[in-house]
Simulated scan of single mutants.
Amino acid sequence: MRLYALCDQELLDSNGISIEEFISIAKNNSAEIIQYRNKNADVAFIKTQLIKIRKLFDGFLIVNDSYELVELCDGVHLGQEDLLKIDSDIFQAVKILRSVIGKDKIFGISTHNEKEVLQANEMDLNYIGLGAYKTSSTKDVSSVLGDELDKIALKSKHPVGAIGGVKKSDLFQNITYHVIGSGLIK
């Protein structure tokens, strides 16, 4: 199992866990990637947190949404709805974002079904997140893929991270990364 640790600031705050504690937990679980997600803070606070993470973690660092801060990270991750904020055509949104962040940065997006995975196959991406696998306490989930997730992942030409309610003990055949947030700290 390869681990992609999702460091969600709201979740850390609600559990009284510092960035430093989360990074220690992620490292103890052999995380290869940490994605920092903060949907409520201003860019200055996010920048401060990314700098802290970079000092403590020598693996890959991905920022969620705040692509203007990608110079502090190895890449950026966006959800489908966030792509639509860039352009109403998600294919064009990916092209725009790739031109902004450059070819040397990691770029991933969230997908939720087979249609979105097949669309992602036509995009200049490094990986996709696919889910939700199960219900999650950190995000509203409109559909749960369950065992279908692994079958849909097989259709992706990109490496796939299983998202949404994933546990370290979950077994998959076609998944590159277990994307785990709350499961690391509870």
Score class of each variant (00 low, 15 high):
Arg2Phe: 00
Ala5Lys: 03
Cys7Tyr: 04
Ser14Tyr: 11
Ile17Met: 14
Ser18Ile: 06
Phe22Gly: 12
Ile23Tyr: 03
Ile25Tyr: 12
Ala26Phe: 04
Asn28Lys: 15
Asn29Thr: 07
Ile33Lys: 02
Ile34Asn: 01
Ile34Leu: 06
Ile34Trp: 04
Gln35Tyr: 01
Lys39Thr: 11
Lys39Glu: 05
Ile46Lys: 10
Gln49Ile: 13
Ile51Arg: 14
Asp58Ala: 10
Leu61Thr: 02
Ile62Val: 08
Ser66Ala: 15
Val70Ser: 11
Glu71Gly: 09
Leu72Asn: 06
Cys73Tyr: 04
Asp74Trp: 01
Val76Leu: 08
His77Glu: 02
Gln80Trp: 14
Glu81Cys: 04
Asp82Tyr: 04
Ile86Val: 10
Asp87Arg: 14
Ala93Ile: 08
Leu97Val: 13
Ile101His: 11
Lys105Leu: 05
Ile106Met: 01
Ile106Ala: 00
Ile106Pro: 04
His112Cys: 07
Val117Met: 09
Leu118Arg: 15
Asn126Arg: 11
Gly129Ile: 04
Leu130Asn: 07
Thr135Trp: 10
Ser136Ala: 13
Ser137Ile: 14
Ser143Arg: 10
Ser143Asp: 12
Asp150Met: 07
Lys151Met: 11
Ala153Asp: 15
Ser156Lys: 05
Val160Cys: 03
Ala162Gln: 02
Gly164Val: 00
Leu171Arg: 08
Val179Tyr: 01
Ser182Gln: 09
Gly183His: 05
